[in-house]
């Protein structure tokens, strides 16, 4: 039995999405094969990773790194690459 097909009856005709801003519901983190791990000891809060992350997955508070929110992190590894202090490493997920 095929399970991964949507029910056309519950879909808007014509490949349209009528709910604005709902791409947040699409958890692109599902695609990930690697996960970034942050070492707070090494981090100097330069925010370079926050600027570069394409998926808005680096959280900040009061101008400092507050952690990672991985629901949309695709594991691209950019944050690890740009970090000047090697405070982020990529691990298998």
């Amino acid at each position: 039995m095929m399970v991964n097909m949507a029910d056309h009856n519950s879909m808007i005709v014509g490949d349209r999405v009528i709910e604005p801003g709902n791409s947040e519901k699409f958890q692109t983190g599902d695609w990930r094969s690697q996960v970034p791990v942050l070492d707070k000891e090494k981090c100097i809060d330069c925010l370079t990773c926050w600027i570069f992350c394409p998926d808005d997955s680096i959280l900040t508070k009061d101008g400092k790194i507050a952690g990672l929110k991985l629901s949309h992190c695709k594991g691209c590894g950019i944050c690890a690459k740009v970090c000047p202090k090697d405070a982020i490493t990529m691990k298998g997920d």
Binding site: N4, M5, H8, M11, D15, I18
Partner: peptide
């Protein structure tokens, strides 16, 4: 009423569409 048209479908939606 903001809407999006002609989005990426993938196998889950292509055939139903």
């Amino acid at each position: 009423k903001p809407v999006s048209h002609n989005l990426m479908d993938g196998p889950m939606f292509y055939y139903p569409h």
